[in-house]
Each structure stands twice: as structure tokens, then as C-alpha cells.
Nucleic acid binder design. Sequence first.
DNA 1: GCCCTGACGTGAA
DNA 2: ATTCACGCCAGGG
Length: 149
Amino acid sequence: MKSGRPDAPPAHDAIRATIAAIPCGRVAAYGEIARRAGLPGRARLVGTVLREAPPALSLPWHRVLRADGRLAFPPGSRAFREQVRRLAGEGVLVRAGRVDLSLHGWERDVDRLLWGPAVPGDRTSARAKTGKRHRATAVRVMNATGRED
DNA sequence: GCCCTGACGTGAA
DNA sequence: ATTCACGCCAGGG
């Protein structure tokens, strides 16, 4: 029995569902999406799926970045600018072609970021020591969280 | 089936 | 911070 569409590989479905689940104001790497979709190591497949995905699905493709936080498109290209635009619309700032994953990364739990114990090697906690930056970060996160649509 | 390509990831130089 | 080389594997020719 085919569940729904015979021409829709389960892997593709899982990937699309995972991408659709990325909350507004957050971003995730290709590799992370593959992992969450139960397909560890298939980062490239995520790219393929996105490329083939019909616009009608309205997947939040702009929330998908490379592992280092940089956009996957060539800087200055049409898609690149569009992605920056969309991200900005959600309060996600792109600087030098990259997004700060410690700030907007999906993998990082927001509550732990604000209230939890400092994680060794976490740049965010290090910056928090300066004080000022910490408050600005908290405000930004709360704004992003409170906004639903 | 072989070969090339790619919206990737990682580690080394 | 940058560049390079590989590893990876699904698609398409």
C-alpha cells in the first residue's frame, strides 16, 4: 500500500516536513535537517529536495543555511538577496553573508540559552558576561518567540 | 551500469 | 579567516 503518493520518496517527505517545522525567526543547517529527518549524513539530499520543491508548498527554504551559518547561494545572487530579505523580515540579521547560529539556530534551545547553565565553549555565554549584549539578546529572542505568524 | 554534478560537512593546510 | 581536498550519496544523462 502506498501512503498517498507513490512517486513521493519517504525521505523527501521527511525532509520537507522537517523544514516546514522550523519555527519563524530560527534557522537550521542542511545537515541538521537531515538528522532530524532521520537521515544522518544526507545533507546534500536536503538541498536537492529544496531545489525540486514546488513553490506551492511554501516551504520556509530561507531558514535553511550551511553548517557554518552562511547562506548556500553565491553572495549577491538573486536567491541570496531574496533569502536575506526574508530572513530580515523575521528578525534574523545576516551579516557578511552569514547568520549567527548561536543566536538563531534551531538546535539551540532558547530557554537553555537564557536560563540554563553555561555550556563550555559557548560563545553566547562568554558574551553574556559583558552584560549589555546579554540584555539585547534576551529582548530579541523574546520578540522572535512572541511573534507567531 | 558508469560518470558527472551538486541549495553539504569536516578536517587539514 | 580562507582555501583545498575528500567523503558522501541521490539524480540525471
